[in-house]
């Protein structure tokens, strides 16, 4: 048995040379806090799904990118919608296409296309250009989770985004797959796809708690971390610096950063928000302060302002907008 190197996430390492082709290409400007780092490492170690909850715009989704980038692992993102079923993440089978191919073949004559063997196919996950209707395997495509189950040399990161949007049964159906023996069956081709014992997928799940709680048996399997909004000026500044560092643009002056972060945090704390702004809104706002006009917004002016400049970027609801006008 080969000893597999244990994966460890640090949050600030560059991408390894041998990164998978499906790994994120761009470095992710993400400042990972100590508790969050630990949660990721524990999820890597126990291979249990990591459930992240928190306000919108706290970086729940970006974490998966950051993990996949640093470890050089492929990232398969699965956006959940209200009509999503658990099977969609595993595979899809195109029976209509197969029927179509049979008809076309009949019309085009008896000549069968040169049959590709499994080994010849460039990518076993993708259907080949020359499909053979006699081979049902040519008509199945794997979903994000299915791809992750087929990884043999390294695990894959699967991001299941906004799981709370899905139908009631969805988490429970998912649970049967994300547990021993980590396998699922494709009914149409009679294949059983089993995840490699050493390379089980790393599952990161985000939820907004939009539609109530997730079922208890599902929660029991998951590691849970609530993401707080970065409530310190220093943390916010660190995030800003990381962003500008990676985009290699001129960062706003330290003064402006501090003033903006202070102002933003006080507003965020003092006002009664219906939809509090997240980190991404802050970054946009700072960018506007810094570069929208020809000259950056003056720090003194910002501190003296009773009304925030560029309010459009922060207040996304009419009642919030009205409150902000009243409070200041």
């Amino acid at each position: 048995m080969t000893v597999v190197e244990r994966l460890k996430f640090y949050g600030d390492r560059p991408q390894p040379e041998s990164a998978h082709k499906d790994a994120p290409q761009q470095p992710e400007p993400y400042v990972v806090t100590e508790p969050l780092k630990k949660a990721v490492n524990l999820a890597l170690f126990l291979r249990r799904p990591l459930l992240l909850e928190g306000d919108a715009g706290c970086g729940k989704t970006r974490l998966a990118y950051s993990v996949a980038y640093e470890l050089g692992l492929p990232l398969y993102r699965w956006d959940v919608r209200s009509s999503t079923r658990a099977q969609d993440g595993l595979y899809e089978y195109d029976a209509i296409l197969r029927l179509h191919d049979v008809e076309v073949q009949k019309i085009a004559g008896a000549e069968r296309p040169s049959v590709q063997t499994e080994a010849e196919a460039e990518d076993p996950d993708e259907p080949p250009a020359q499909r053979d209707p006699g081979n049902p395997k040519h008509y199945r495509t794997f979903g994000p989770l299915g791809k992750a189950f087929r990884m043999r040399d390294r695990p894959a990161v699967v991001l299941i985004d906004e799981i709370d949007k899905a139908d009631l049964d969805f988490p429970n159906d998912l649970l049967t797959v994300l547990d021993e023996p980590w396998a699922f069956t494709i009914r149409e081709t009679r294949e059983t796809i089993t995840a490699d014992e050493q390379h089980k997928p790393i599952v990161i799940i985000t939820s907004n708690k939009e539609k109530g709680n997730l079922p208890a048996p599902f929660l029991r399997r998951c590691l849970y971390r609530y993401l707080d909004f970065p409530n310190q000026t220093d943390t916010l500044k660190k995030i800003v610096q990381r962003h500008y560092e990676i985009q290699s643009e001129a960062a706003p002056t330290d003064e402006l950063q501090t003033a903006a972060a202070d102002k933003f945090l006080t507003e965020r704390k003092n006002l009664k928000w219906f939809k509090p702004p997240g980190t991404s809104e802050f970054l946009d706002w700072l960018k506007a302060l810094h570069a929208f006009e020809d000259d950056p917004y003056s720090t003194g002016q910002l501190n003296a302002d009773t009304h925030l400049p560029y309010r459009e970027l922060l207040f996304k609801r009419q009642d919030d907008w009205r409150n902000s006008a009243k409070a200041s």
């Binding site: 630990k38 249990r48 909850e53 208890a216 929660l219 849970y224």
Partner: peptide, 25 residues
Amino acid sequence: AAVEADFAADAEALEDTLKLIWCHS
């Protein structure tokens, strides 16, 4: 997890680890 030094070096680390695994809200 408790066997690993990373996750259970002292009481505080263990507390956080157990919270991660056992608490879901």
